[in-house]
Every structure is written in structure tokens, then in C-alpha cells.
Design a protein around this nucleic acid. Sequence first.
DNA 1: CGGCATCCCCTTCGATACTG
DNA 2: CAGTATCGAAGGGGATGCCG
Lengths: 144, 144
Amino acid sequence: MAAAKGTPMSPTHIEETALAGFPGYESSCEIDEDAGRAIREVLDRVGDKWSLLVIATLRRDRLRFSELLRHIPGISQRMLTLTLRQLQRDGLISRTAYAEVPPRVEYELTALGGTLIPIARTIGDWALANHPAIVESRSQYDAR
Amino acid sequence: MAAAKGTPMSPTHIEETALAGFPGYESSCEIDEDAGRAIREVLDRVGDKWSLLVIATLRRDRLRFSELLRHIPGISQRMLTLTLRQLQRDGLISRTAYAEVPPRVEYELTALGGTLIPIARTIGDWALANHPAIVESRSQYDAR
DNA sequence: CGGCATCCCCTTCGATACTG
DNA sequence: CAGTATCGAAGGGGATGCCG
């Protein structure tokens, strides 16, 4: 997706940090830059319009394509397909196709994908709690 | 890679924010429709390319525009401006301009913006821990 | 120094139609 | 049922230039 674009990135220059002080990567400058890259790539994967919602929807059971389509309001067939392919490629969900008529395909979180559930919950918690404040701040800002 | 050091990949790192007992909201294992919309909302705000990185960079001190530019590798002047405006509009950061020559502008997290730090931390932890696994899975998927 | 404004490419995503 | 193919609108985001 947004991964491979033309990023100039001068190799001679050692950048300063975006994330020094965060647990686990406060040690050196190079790790900080790696952390920044990693975060951006993860956001590119999971920060898109539907990925995290698909993950959240699959948190309990394996679901069929059409079930996912029904459980996620507003998603189009095309976007569900594309999102599922990305997640499968990244090892976050598994796809199982049964050779039946009519065909049946089931999707399921992998162990790796399951580790994203706490993130979905954290984001969901924050959004439910603070969305009204954001709306309020925004309308005040726009009032000028 | 960088992820193998430090923390031994504990997947559940749930940060308890100040919203325990938030009126009308209880944290549950369920990610229902409201939470789904909430996830979509916050991802629209903060799931873009730079917002979370700006938040993380401001987590300690107030910083000037040029300092932010230096601390966030790869961001363009234009995108930093746009990101800061949006964060300011949503009440997540505050902007203070000093009438000096040369001009000086400082950005700082608001209290609301500060509540995003646990999210940045959670995502950062996950990214560092699992980014290598994703890259690996992706290359295997592509090799077929 | 701290920005807007402009140009323009590229990606994302929805709508629609078709297939095994 | 579970996709694939194609088109087109919308906007994200880099490069550059100008300005208080």
C-alpha cells in the first residue's frame, strides 16, 4: 500500500529521534529511527479504513466472507476483499477455503493478529471517551 | 532486529487510562458497533501518516516548529504544518506564537492530547515487537 | 523562522459489472 | 457464495516558491 514510495532518505545523515524515552527503545538513536519507521509501517497497514475493524470483528469466531460483510456496516465487497488479502499477507489472519458447492471461505485471526486486539480496545476506549471533547474543540476552532 | 531486544514480546500491554468509570461507558471484552464507529473515528483523526508521531514527539516538552521538523525524520514542512493544524483544531495540541524577531512558535500537548500517549505507546510496543514477523510473513506470501 | 499557496502525481476507495 | 475487473472521484502528500 503506502509502503514503497519514493523516499529520498539520505544515508549519511544520522537523524535525531522521534521516540526516545519510550520503553524498550530509549537506548540509541538508530533504534529510535527504526521505531519511527516501524510505527509508520504498522500504521500504514492497520491504520487504514477497515483493517482494525476486520480484526476486531474476527476477535471471537472465524467468520465467512458474507458474515464479515454483514457485520461491518459500510464496507464494500471490494474493500473487504482487499483488506482481507492485506491482512492475510501480513500474517494477521488465516484464510480457509472449503471445496464445496456453494463455496465457503472462513477467516480467522492468527496468533499474531490476536495481539492486535488490545490495540483495538485501547483505541476504542479512547475514542468513546474523548470523541465528544474533540467534536467540541473542533466546533470552537471553526467558530473563527 | 531491533524488536528482539528489550521486552520479551508480551502481547498484552493494556494501559489503564483515566476512563475507568467514565459515565455511560464501561470497558468490556466486546467490541460492538459503537466501538466500531469509535475506532473508525479515531483512526480518521490519528491514523494518518504523521499525527501519532507528532504526538509522541511532543510527549515530554513543548517544541518549536523547526525542532519538530528535525525530530521527525522524513516529514515535509507542508505535512508538519497540516498535521499541527489538525491536531490543534481537535484540541490535542496547543500553539503559542511569540511576537519576536525572528518569530518563535511552540507546540505543546494539551491534557486531551496527553491521553493519546498510552495509545502511541501501545502501538509503538506492538510495532517493535511484531514488525519483523510481518515482514517475514509478507515475503513468504509474496514468494508463492 | 514559520508558514501558506500552487502544481501535480499517486493512492485510496466506492460503484458497478462480470465470473467460477 | 466469494470473489475479480474496471472506471472515476477524492484527497493525501511531495516539491517548490513566496511572504510576514
